[in-house]
Amino acid sequence: MRTTNNVILQTSIKILLFFIVLYSVYIFTAGHYYPGGGFIGGLMTAGAIVLLLIAYDIKTVAKILPVNYRILTAVGLIFAIGTSAGALLFNVPFLTHAFGHVVIPVLGDISLHTATLFDLGVYFVVVGVTMTIIQTIGEDE
């Protein structure tokens, strides 16, 4: 990406980025009950990083976030397949999910769900894929 003098964008992005990422995480975790989920959360996170790319150049962003997005994609796939295949260990069909409630001090009653792990895989894959695409094109001369 070309480095231009985008002072306004660069300043505002420092604050905005925090909110966007936070919101995307919220959207992701809320997915099972309210609109949201892995796809939307992932895309939103990716959108935040794209915004960062627009404000700064690709090398700076790579320094800030030293993530290999292809590996992230693979990790996401392993998460998704792992949670699905994990069901086989309990002698139930592939992709059967389980859920339950746990009471944790301070936070209170929390409902836990293996589907969230699956969704986390989706989240990683979406971030990984989107960023791989954008980064590869962006780095191309």
Partner: peptide, 10 residues
């Protein structure tokens, strides 16, 4: 779950 679309998906 309560979000049907998301439950269908995952």
């Amino acid at each position: 779950g309560k979000n049907m679309v998301n439950v269908i998906l995952v």
